[in-house]
């Protein structure tokens, strides 16, 4: 371990907690906006993993950090698209509760 300071598993624990909080939120919240926020949590936990592993396993490279930035950029686009979809759903169904949007039922 070439660096003093916070050990790797601390990062991993934080990111795991964030990941499962995000999953829990995605599965239980009925509001589409909140579900979108949960997805952001999941993405960010992954970002933490990337940065942490980059820092601890390949301190000379920057691949993990590039990846994080890439994910952040994609997440921004995805949020824009998702919100556009949610607005359209609201216009169509007058609700943003995910339970009421079941057009794809059998």
């Amino acid at each position: 371990m070439s660096h003093a300071g916070i050990p790797l598993h601390y990062f991993l624990i934080v990111s795991t907690i964030m990941f499962f909080v995000g999953v829990y939120g995605f599965l239980t919240r009925k509001n589409l906006i909140t579900m979108l926020m949960s997805i952001e949590l999941i993405l960010n936990s992954v970002n933490i993993n990337f940065v942490a592993f980059n820092r601890y396993l390949y301190p000379d490279g920057l691949h993990g950090q590039f990846f994080s930035i890439f994910i952040i950029a994609v997440a921004a686009c995805e949020a824009a698209v998702a919100i556009a979809i949610i607005i359209n759903i609201y216009r169509r169904f007058r609700t943003i509760s995910v339970e009421d949007v079941s057009e794809m039922k059998f």
């Binding site: 995605f26 599965l27 995910v98 339970e99 949007v101 057009e103 794809m104 039922k105 059998f106």
Partner: peptide, 17 residues
């Protein structure tokens, strides 16, 4: 078995996870 296709996104997500 058609009940699996409930149209509830969260059920699909749960099954996926």
């Amino acid at each position: 078995i058609k009940g699996f296709q409930s149209g509830q996104v969260q059920q699909y997500g749960f099954a996926f996870i």
